[in-house]
């Protein structure tokens, strides 16, 4: 059974549709990447899966249950967690408080979960009492991902996790994504660094103009000359 099944999703803002019927699957244990040019509807797709942009048509099925247009806090309860691209930490709250809020819906002792995030991202441990807004971009991204991991998600949605990061930090974050996936969390992500993303993903979808353009095992897409020419910069 697929963890996530999106069929013919139509969504947009105001009177304007951005997605014109997109379909994707994410299997258990998979890393699936969505690539495509700016304006292809990648962010809109994640947001409409997560209920931040209401879908106008099509369906979203999560763990066998229809969740089309379900509100974000209901999806969080079912184990879907989302890391937005921008403004993805609470800047005036400390690192540790950011993590605690990730598990806001749980009434449990969070120390063990927080310790696991610190194991994954050691730099956060020594900064745990600092306001998240004072950290570097890469470390803020660690806080954002760590926050989303606090609930042991059954699916993690990442919107451009390396946007604005230095190459070294970008590499580190992508390595961590692989590590998180290896621990059993399926991941659906958007990544503008398409080559690096394909190299670490199981499968990928290429979107253009709000429609599925190509899909397949990431390794095959990476070697496809047409993909290389059009989407990977030659």
């Amino acid at each position: 059974m697929s963890t996530l099944l999106v069929r013919d999703l139509v969504a947009g803002y105001g009177g304007l549709d951005i997605l014109h019927g997109v379909s994707i699957d994410v299997g258990p244990d998979e890393i699936v990447t969505i690539i495509g040019p700016n304006g292809a509807g990648k962010s809109t797709l994640l947001k409409s899966i997560f209920g931040l942009v209401p879908p106008r048509a099509g369906s979203v099925t999560f763990m066998g249950k229809d969740v089309t247009g379900e509100r974000p806090n209901r999806l969080v309860h079912q184990g879907m967690c989302f890391v937005p691209q921008n403004r993805n930490v609470f800047p005036r709250l400390t690192v540790e408080e950011n993590l605690q809020l990730g598990a806001y819906i749980l009434n449990a002792d969070l120390r063990e979960r927080i310790a696991r995030v610190y194991d994954l991202f050691p730099p956060l441990k020594e900064k745990r009492r600092q306001p998240a807004g004072t950290l570097s971009g890469g470390q803020q991204q660690m806080v954002a991902i760590g926050r989303a991991l606090m609930l042991d998600p059954k699916l993690l949605l990442l919107d451009e996790p390396t946007a604005g990061l230095s190459p070294a930090f970008a590499r580190l974050i992508l390595e961590k994504v692989v590590e998180i996936n290896a621990a059993g969390v399926p991941i659906l992500m958007i990544e503008q660094n398409a080559k690096a993303a394909l190299a670490m993903s199981h499968r990928a979808y290429i979107l253009t103009m709000g429609r599925n353009r190509m899909e397949g095992p990431a390794a095959e897409l990476l070697e496809n000359p047409e993909v290389g020419r059009l989407f990977l910069g030659g």
Partner: peptide, 22 residues
Amino acid sequence: KIGKAMRAMADNMELAMVTGIA
């Protein structure tokens, strides 16, 4: 918990919703 959620909402409302805060 409520106090932290309040500060979180004052900081970043959209993220507070994404996080599952009621």
